[in-house]
Design a binder for these strands. Structure first.
Lengths: 219, 219
DNA sequence: ATAGGTAATATTGTCTGTCAATCTGATTGA
DNA sequence: TCAATCAGATTGACAGACAATATTACCTAT
């Protein structure tokens, strides 16, 4: 019996999807930016077929918008759309935190604490790079600890769609610090195994993030 | 000021996506079925490029699974995955119903009642076709009435992934009838503008659907 | 006859090239 | 200045090619 070591050797198209997604999330392609097939093919060194397949993939993820006969572009989010995404995040992340409170192992909880402290250090250092990274690491523990892969999937999809907003709002003065307080509240509730508080704290965290995002909006 | 009547003339690839999605949802391609590019190209009368782009789209929707060097196939859902989808549906549909209770117009509420009665008739007629159609129409009112397009999007995506299970479990003896009772409870709570009850009823409805689905599972 | 290995076939991943339809931008003319 | 027109750029869709991989059929040896 041979273990399936199917080293899913990254197919070209998969690599293109990852690269493009990364480029969009990192803000290299800002909202509204048109993605011209020819340019991307040259930049990535792949054929149009492969590129187009990758773009269709990202289209289904709502990371690019393909307008017939006009081509793909990075979608521009209206505030209404963004707000609705935050609302759903509130639901999902509240649920995830609540589940963590009741089912997370002690090991995971101490890992959560470590990541919280890493975020704290990033706040004190005012290191924007480390900030978003540490925040993502903290959430990753909660999401993966909630025991529902679908929640993780959906939440990741929603986060991607508002990445631009998030990086902007996270750099508002004072937002990082308050963010830390809120995350600590979530951690405390989970460590105390208090489902209700955990949900409440996580929902409040998202609600505050939404408020910050709104401030930065008209840009 | 000219209204944008951009009759998004259905591009070939879009039509292929719709056709394939419909085929999968209708059960024409059962879970596990392999989708051979050559066959589909011939059946649909399109080129491989167009077909492959469409498949990438469906892959991102999790309606097909593409294994490198093996090709696309309809995913087989484990019960664990299905259960997690039901759990998220509980959250989303509970929220949607709660929102309907507080914000739905009286017109919408009477429309909801009509659709409920249409479902009732389908139950009495034991018309499986009309049953799923009427159920979908009922939910459509609630989902669209909840005022959050993201909830609608995500829920639709999740429903699609368990369509096979749903049609099977809806045809369990007695399930349709109980389904009607549950839907009536949702309607009643919304009509009474009772957020809490509406959420509770909608969640219970999904929970019961999950229980029915579980029964049919080992297939 | 069956297990295991090998050859033949089918299928996929990727590229190149083509062509019409459509969009974009610039030029021109009133 | 504004509108019409035209040239160039870009996309949507197709066909075909070819290597890499997977699947099947076949054959041999135990």
């Amino acid at each position: 019996m041979e273990l399936d070591l199917r080293i899913t050797r990254k197919t070209v198209q998969q690599e293109v999807v990852d690269k493009l997604r990364q480029a969009i999330l990192s803000g290299m392609f800002p909202p509204g930016h048109r993605l011209v097939e020819g340019e991307l093919c040259e930049a990535l060194g792949v054929s149009r077929s492969s590129l187009r397949e990758a773009l269709r993939n990202l289209q289904a993820e709502h990371l690019v918008e393909i307008i017939p006969n006009r081509g793909p572009q990075v979608p521009v989010l209206s505030w209404e759309d963004a707000e609705e995404i935050y609302e759903v995040r509130e639901l999902l992340e509240g649920e995830a935190a609540a589940r963590c409170a009741s089912r997370m192992s002690d090991d995971c909880i101490s890992q959560l604490e470590e990541r919280l402290e890493a975020f704290h250090r990033a706040v004190l250092d005012e290191d924007g790079e480390a900030l978003t990274e540490a925040a993502a690491a903290f959430y990753a523990v909660i999401l993966s600890g909630c025991g529902n892969k679908i929640i993780v999937q959906v939440q990741a999809g929603l986060l991607a769609r508002i990445s631009y907003l998030r990086t902007r709002s996270m750099s508002l003065p004072g937002r990082a610090r308050r963010s830390y307080e809120e995350m600590r509240a979530i951690y405390a509730a989970i460590a105390a195994r208090d489902e209700r508080d955990a949900r409440k704290a996580a929902m409040k965290h998202v609600a505050n993030a939404r408020a910050s995002a709104k401030q930065t909006f008209p840009a």
